[in-house]
């Protein structure tokens, strides 16, 4: 029997992964100060606009999806009835 991978069974590893993830976010915010910007529209002059937009896009997506679910969700056998 081949060995199973199980690195995420250890909560410590998940914690490490999250720390790496949070660090990369900070690095991305700092990196913006060291690149040559060419903003597409006026609002892109704001530092971190993409970050904020990406974050709130996903929050809005989930929020609206939860509302949509109230309307469209049916039991799996809905069409068989």
């Amino acid at each position: 029997m081949k060995k199973e991978f199980s690195i995420f069974d250890n909560p410590k590893n998940i914690k490490r992964l999250l720390i790496i993830f949070y660090c990369s976010l900070v690095i991305l915010l700092i990196a913006e100060f060291f690149i040559h910007p060419h903003p597409a529209f006026f609002f892109e002059h704001i530092k971190g606009f993409s970050a904020v937009y990406g974050f709130f896009s996903c929050v809005l997506l989930i929020f609206l999806a939860k509302i949509l679910r109230l309307i469209v969700m049916k039991k799996e056998n809905y069409y068989d009835k």
């Binding site: 999250l18 993830f21 990369s24 976010l25 991305l28 915010l29 990196a31 913006e32 060291f34 690149i35 040559h36 910007p37 060419h38 903003p39 892109e44 971190g48 993409s50 970050a51 904020v52 937009y53 990406g54 974050f55 709130f56 896009s57 996903c58 929050v59 989930i62």
Partner: peptide, 23 residues
């Protein structure tokens, strides 16, 4: 591959991922 483009795209994606993780 320009600096602004790569960083902008990564910010958009990674902070979207942050929203996923927090939710």
């Amino acid at each position: 591959y320009t600096g602004a483009h790569v960083v902008g795209q990564l910010q958009l994606l990674m902070f979207g991922a942050l929203a996923f993780a927090l939710l």
